[in-house]
């Protein structure tokens, strides 16, 4: 049995092949889903990959949230299934209201493409089950708008509810509270600016991204009902 992963492709997405390769290397089966489709295929995990969906016109993620597939993506999340937005995918999830807050331009107005160290603040989530609390993950970032913000009440609520899952060890972009990745209240939706799919092979400089992707696949396998009679 393998986890089935749907990777949504918007016009302007550019990390879908990296996602395909990394999820498949870790044992999942993947398929691409065009943003203009109305329904998702039968999948356990949905990935919104990085890139520049709809050219980032108006704001990052602002137009992607109106793509026809997003209704089905929201239903997938509402059913408690796993949904991850990476980089531009994170921006789309915030615009769609599936995650709190918004991503602003980086402090310093520089496009950042570099390795970062992340600290796992909340282990035991479907995205961090393979990590220990405080474990450091070396995963690269590649963005201009990664400076996360939410109002103080929202941040306080998120802290109390353990939704601030990943923080930068050294804040590269001014993100509030050093946030690199957050989950929704229910814990089945994660958005993060760093690219775990680019850090799943030692040849690429790090395998730490496999901690996140592997945790998701473990979660799906644990949720699978046992075949009848077994």
């Amino acid at each position: 049995m393998t986890a089935r992963v749907g990777i949504v492709v918007f016009p302007g997405s550019n990390c879908e092949l990296d996602c395909e390769r990394s999820f498949e290397r870790l044992g999942a089966s993947t398929e691409f889903v065009w943003h203009d489709d109305n329904t998702l295929p039968d999948v356990d995990i949905v990935v919104l990959p990085g890139g520049f969906a709809h050219g980032d016109y108006l704001r990052t993620g602002a137009l992607a949230r109106f793509s026809p597939i997003m209704h089905s993506v929201a239903e997938h999340a509402a059913a408690g299934k796993l949904l991850i937005g990476i980089c531009n995918g994170f921006q789309v999830l915030c615009e769609a209201g599936l995650l709190p807050g918004a991503l602003r331009k980086n402090e310093g107005l520089k496009f950042l493409c570099k390795w970062t160290e992340l600290r796992v603040e909340v282990p035991g989530t479907p995205f961090t089950a393979r990590a220990e609390r405080g474990q450091l993950l070396r995963i690269p970032i590649n963005h201009f708008e990664g400076n996360w913000y939410a109002d103080p009440d929202t941040v306080a609520r998120m802290r109390a509810n353990h939704q601030i899952v990943l923080r930068y060890v050294k804040n590269p972009n001014g993100s509030l509270d050093g946030v690199a990745g957050i989950s929704n209240e229910r814990g089945n939706v994660l958005g993060l600016m760093p690219h775990p799919e680019r850090a799943c092979e030692s040849l690429l400089g790090s395998e730490d991204g496999a901690v996140i992707i592997g945790s998701m696949l473990d979660h799906v396998m644990h949720m699978q009902p046992s075949p009848a009679g077994v």
């Binding site: 108006l58 704001r59 602002a62 109106f66 915030c94 615009e95 807050g101 918004a102 602003r104 913000y149 939410a150 109002d151």
Partner: peptide, 8 residues
């Protein structure tokens, strides 16, 4: 709904 993101 679209032109502004009122979070920021």
């Amino acid at each position: 709904r679209l032109l502004a993101n009122t979070v920021i």
